[in-house]
Each structure stands twice: as structure tokens, then as C-alpha cells.
């Protein structure tokens, strides 16, 4: 039996005991407490040393906390802004203005959807050109009002489609990077799930880049790397390792600022604890950034990106 299977058995047993306690009024407190301690310990063991490929699976879970529900739990108020003002609106990349711990901020986030209809409409979080043109527009609103920009990423990548190309998705991503880089107020990016390629970096040219423990950030999907470089899609787990796409690896390389711990078992096991952990980290980084005068903020930002990777590990 694997640790994960043993974990499942223990969890079922605990549920059974709880049911008995409730139905028959038995006092099973002590037994339940022992079992729960065992479960917590086993969970920590199982999840502390996950392989990069296992983290890829966690990052991709459809029930991973992200999207609109995450934003609604994160902020006291959120008002969505829609449309790129030229072609249309994109349900996969959304954004608007929010109140976060009393602060006004602009928010941009990928939305993968909870129901099958929503997931189809948002192409599982793959935003098209309209999404990135809209993101640029919302960042411009924030620039005029000197509001911080917070981005919450969870995307396999930008959508590769005929319409996306016709509407210049490459130009839209480039414009997002440029707009974010010039932004006259603090910017923080948090990778909640998948940070896939150009569709992620478009929203990650930030003063601070944070990742949830089991989130991934990669130039290409492990499957894509496997089929291009190994000519064998089955070696995706190996590719996931070689790409150094985990939060821990990227923190060691000095490319991200903080790894936000997840509840044992993964972010999906505790939505509100995950939101709270992200909120605390966000507020801390925003406070640090807001203490800096604008010219210092921009200088630090250009230093960060102007020579990234050229001097060995960044820190």
C-alpha cells in the first residue's frame, strides 16, 4: 500500500468514527483525535517530498483555489471590468478593481471555471488575445489612478488559435509585459496553479513574484518538452524535473521571492486557509513596496529584470 492509499484508508476510518459518534452518541473523542494526528503526520510525509510531476498534477487540479471565487474570498469588494474595447471579452483572463485590506488595487486573474460549461468557455484558463488586450487596458486604468496591480496566475498558457493570431495575441502579451514593467505603482504576481509560458509571464513582470508551494512556472509544459526534446510524451515526469518548474526550485534559482506554504494535502484541501495564506503574503509584500518612493521602486524593478540570469543565481 502506498502512503497515499494508507492516507485514504485512515481518512475513511475517521469519517466512519465521526458518523458513529454522531448517530449513536458514543464518546469517541480520544479515538478520533489519535486518528487525526496520524492522518496529519502521514499527510506531511506524503506532501513534503512530492516529485515535480506530482506537483504538476496538484497545480492542475480543477478544484485548485483560484479564479473568481478566490478573488471574492480575498477582497472585501471586487468590481469586474470587462472587454478589450476593440474585439470582445475573454472569460479566461478577468480583472477589475478591488478593495484589499482597505486598499484600492487592480486585480487580474485567470479563471478556469468550476462547471464543465464554464471550463469550456474559458478553454481551461487559456486566454486569447482579447484577454491580454483587456489586461493591458485594466493596467492602464490602474496606472492613471496610481493603484497597485495584483495578478493571480493559473493558466496552461495562452490559447493557440486562429482567432488569437488574427487578433495579435503575441502583440497583446508583449504589450502587457511592457505596460506592467512601466507601471507607476507596486506590482505583485502570485502563481496559484499553473504558470504556463508566455500566457503567464505576460502578467508576471512584477516587483514581487510569489508562488504557492505546489504551483508551477514553466517555459513549456512537461508534455511539450518531452515530445519536442525527448521525442516521447511519456517522459513528461522527467521533463518536469529537468525544467526546474517548482516553486522551491525557482526560489533557489532566485527567480521568485517567496514560496507560500499550502495546507498539508495541497491547496484544494483547504480553500480558506489557502486564501488567507496568500492574503497575508500579498499584504506583507505590498506594504514593503508601498514604503518605497516611486523612483526607487522602478529602479529596483529594472535592476531585477535588466540582467536576469546574467550574473548567475539572482541572489
Amino acid at each position: 500500500m502506498t502512503d497515499e492509499e494508507r492516507l485514504k484508508v485512515l481518512e475513511e476510518k475517521a469519517a466512519e468514527l465521526r458518523r458513529l459518534a454522531e448517530q449513536d452518541g458514543l464518546d469517541l473523542h480520544a479515538e478520533i483525535a489519535i486518528l487525526e494526528r496520524k492522518i496529519a503526520e502521514l499527510r506531511r510525509q506524503v506532501y513534503a517530498d512530492l516529485s515535480p510531476w506530482a506537483r504538476v498534477q496538484l497545480a492542475r487540479r480543477p478544484d485548485r483555489p483560484s479564479g473568481l471565487p478566490f478573488v471574492q474570498a480575498l477582497c472585501e469588494a471586487f468590481y469586474e471590468l470587462r472587454g478589450d474595447r476593440v474585439v470582445g471579452d475573454d472569460p479566461a483572463l478577468r480583472g477589475g478593481l478591488a478593495r484589499l485590506a482597505g486598499m484600492r488595487v487592480a486585480l487580474l486573474f485567470h479563471h478556469r471555471g468550476a462547471t464543465p460549461e464554464e471550463q469550456r468557455a474559458s478553454r481551461f484558463g487559456m486566454a486569447s488575445a482579447q484577454g491580454y488586450w483587456k489586461a493591458k487596458r485594466i493596467m492602464e486604468v490602474a496606472a492613471r489612478l496610481k493603484l497597485p496591480v495584483v495578478t493571480l496566475l493559473n493558466t496552461p498558457g495562452a490559447y493557440p488559435g486562429v482567432q488569437a493570431e488574427a487578433h495579435n495575441v503575441a502583440g497583446a502579451i508583449a504589450a502587457c509585459i511592457w505596460t506592467m514593467l512601466r507601471h507607476p505603482a507596486p506590482t505583485v504576481a502570485v502563481i496559484l496553479g499553473e504558470g504556463g509560458s508566455g500566457g503567464a509571464v505576460a502578467l508576471a513582470a512584477a516587483d514581487r513574484v510569489l508562488m504557492l508551494e505546489n504551483a508551477t512556472y514553466s517555459v513549456i509544459s512537461p508534455e511539450g518538452a518531452a515530445s519536442i526534446l525527448w521525442k516521447d510524451a511519456k517522459v513528461a515526469p522527467k521533463a518536469a524535473e529537468a525544467l526546474k518548474l517548482t516553486a522551491r526550485d525557482l526560489h533557489e534559482l532566485g527567480l521568485i521571492d517567496e514560496v507560500i506554504p499550502e495546507p498539508p494535502g495541497g491547496a484544494h484541501t483547504d480553500f480558506s486557509a489557502t486564501v488567507e495564506a496568500v492574503r497575508q503574503a500579498l499584504l506583507r509584500h505590498l506594504a514593503e513596496l508601498q514604503a518605497l518612493p516611486l523612483d526607487e521602486l522602478l529602479r529596483a524593478r529594472y535592476n531585477r529584470y535588466g540582467h536576469v540570469g546574467a550574473r548567475g543565481p539572482n541572489r
Binding site: 508583449a174 509585459i177 511592457w178 514593467l181 509560458s197 508566455g198 503567464a200 509571464v201 508576471a204 513582470a205 512556472y217 514553466s218 517555459v219 513549456i220 518538452a225 519536442i228 526534446l229 525544467l243 526546474k244 518548474l245 525557482l250 534559482l253 527567480l255 529594472y302 529584470y305 535588466g306 540582467h307 536576469v308 540570469g309
Partner: peptide, 19 residues
């Protein structure tokens, strides 16, 4: 982007836009 340099390649996109 050069796949063999992972996220570092992705971040070159930001670097050349800084230029």
C-alpha cells in the same frame, strides 16, 4: 524561448522589453 533554460528564458522576454 530556449526551452533548455526554463523560466530563465521566459524572463528574457521581460529583459528585452526593459531594453
Amino acid at each position: 524561448a530556449r526551452v533548455q533554460e526554463g523560466v530563465l528564458s521566459l524572463l528574457q522576454m521581460v529583459k528585452v522589453v526593459a531594453g
